[in-house]
């Protein structure tokens, strides 16, 4: 599998009246063809902003890509003109958003909205585009696809709207689909439907997916690689199974421990104290240090780099000055 996208040192800031927000700080990673990457983080962790930066959708001003490059199939997307970017969006990289009600145009029919990119990118005429649009709706599991092309977004339920968004995203066979919390607003039964759909489409089209979420359960289900973000930086990254079994960053561990267990053991939830830092005044060292019970003095002074983890999978990276594995081993021995 070749490298599809290479994000290098991406830094995004927002210059607001209340001060500079350090939204994304030196984010670097690579994404392979056909890989599913799950990005986990809380609100304000920079996970959505970094995706908008890849798509060239950062509102400027107040936002600005301060530095960094995004190589997509070898071409740097940062610095492309709006016209050039428009040929990438929808065609090479498609994005679906959290709220399908606000991201669909309420006064245009679903058919118009799906055929828009087909006509623009694929040069289809109206008849061809309509035919393809109906096929796409059928593919994402909307019954009576042909008739429903004439319907407006409000005539669809939340789950159906999200299917329409996915159909629009898939319309030009993109190589990368970025999904920003696409199931957060949906009920679990509908979420399960969408997850099954995405899994089967991924197999069919062999596209890479970046799935942004705060739900570790969804990542466990879907992703090949997990990437945990905190305060605008990647704090841990690796193959999903490896990271779930052997987390090396205290924030990753905290997230996992704060979840209730579905198997029925009722232990008190382990909570992460405090709240995320204000990114207008980013802390000097490790941004998680003040909430981290394992923090060492160095954590407060110096930011840990993201580097390969000793004694684990070669693709497992973590940013920590402490040795979480040794700490946890000691903890277990003491019990």
């Amino acid at each position: 599998m070749g490298v599809l996208m290479d994000v290098r040192d991406l830094t995004v800031r927002f210059y607001t009246q209340e001060g500079t927000v350090y939204a994304v700080n030196n984010v670097s990673y690579t994404l392979n063809e056909g890989e599913t990457l799950g990005i986990v983080g809380e609100s304000g962790s920079g996970k959505s902003v970094h995706a908008l930066a890849i798509m060239g959708l950062i509102p400027t001003p107040p936002g600005k890509i301060e530095s960094g490059e995004v190589y997509f199939e070898g071409r740097n997307l940062v610095g492309l003109s709006n016209e050039q970017m428009r040929l990438v969006r929808g065609k090479e990289i498609a994005m679906i958003f959290q709220d399908p009600m606000t991201s669909l145009n309420p006064v245009l029919t679903i058919g118009t909205q799906i055929t828009e990119s087909l006509k623009l990118h694929e040069g289809m005429n109206t008849a061809q585009a309509n035919k393809r649009a109906a096929e796409l709706l059928d593919l994402v599991g909307i019954p009576d696809a042909h008739k429903r092309l004439k319907d407006y977004p409000h005539q669809f339920s939340g789950g159906m709207r999200q299917r329409v968004m996915i159909a629009i995203g898939l319309s030009c066979n993109p190589k990368l689909l970025i999904a920003d919390e696409p199931t957060t607003a949906l009920d679990v039964t509908i979420q399960a439907q969408i997850l099954e759909l995405v899994k089967s489409l991924k197999k069919e089209f062999n596209m890479a997916i970046i799935w942004i979420t705060h739900d570790l359960g969804v990542v466990a289900e879907l992703a090949d690689t997990i990437q945990v973000m905190y305060a605008g930086s990647i704090v841990e990254r690796g193959p999903t199974k490896v990271v779930f079994q052997d987390p090396r960053n205290a924030y990753t561990l905290g997230l996992m421990r704060s979840l209730p267990r579905m198997d029925g053991t009722r232990t008190r939830l382990t909570q992460i104290e405090g709240s995320p830092p204000d990114m207008r005044i980013p802390p000097k060292g490790d941004p998680f240090a003040s909430r981290n019970p394992y923090a060492t003095e160095r954590c407060f002074e110096e930011r840990p780099p993201l580097k390969p983890v000793e004694g684990s999978d070669p693709n497992h990276l973590a940013a920590a000055w402490y040795d979480l594995r040794a700490i946890l081993k000691k903890e277990r021995e003491n019990v």
Partner: peptide, 12 residues
Amino acid sequence: ALLSAVPVPDPA
């Protein structure tokens, strides 16, 4: 169906 739809945070 509701219970089986809950994603479990355990890839294994």
